[in-house]
Design a protein around this nucleic acid. Structure first.
Length: 157
DNA sequence: GCCAACGTTGGC
DNA sequence: GCCAACGTTGGC
């Protein structure tokens, strides 16, 4: 079991959008490092839903992987804003995963809160200049953020 | 809207 | 393979 964090701008796709449908397609990632992380994700891995470009930015909920990496269909669709002309059907560059809604944290855990917490000092999303939209999270960090968020969920650290 | 901190592209 | 120019992310 691995743990992750994925960012989304709530104006585009928010935790309540996922909650409403129960399941969603995480697509549009156009960064190799982020893509590589997505390709490592396994079914039932838990993922923090992070609102970026929000006030305040931070972790708002938990989701899980319900379908492992597959070809992101939007890269081949010229009408999509995620279209990548350099991606060939024979050699697609980008991957998508499907996510399932798990919970919305009783208290969102803001980036400020995480940065101020010594236990989270090495968490990737807290590092200066980290723009990566998909990052691995250690079990310890995952458990700690869950606790800060008031979740009853326990993870094995 | 600004801009620092990246990542990518392409000329050489 | 270097690196300047450009594009993007995302906090503020």
């Amino acid at each position: 079991m691995n743990y992750w964090l994925m960012k989304s701008e709530p104006d585009v796709y928010a935790i309540w959008d996922l909650e409403k449908k129960g399941r969603g397609v995480w697509e549009g990632v156009r960064n190799y490092q982020a893509r590589n992380h997505m390709r490592e994700m396994k079914r039932d891995d838990l993922v923090f839903f992070y609102h970026s470009n929000a006030t305040p930015p931070g972790v708002v909920g938990v989701m899980k992987i319900v379908r492992e990496a597959y070809i992101d269909p939007f890269q081949l669709d010229p009408k999509s804003e995620y279209y990548d002309p350099k991606s060939k059907p024979t050699d697609p560059r980008w991957s998508a995963v499907d996510v399932g809604y798990v919970e919305t944290l009783p208290k969102m855990v803001s980036l400020d809160t995480m940065k101020a917490d010594p236990e989270l000092a090495t968490m990737l999303v807290c590092q200066k200049g980290t723009r990566l939209s998909v990052t691995p999270v250690t079990p310890e960090h995952f458990a700690h953020v869950l606790k800060l968020g008031g979740s009853k969920r326990k993870v094995r650290a």
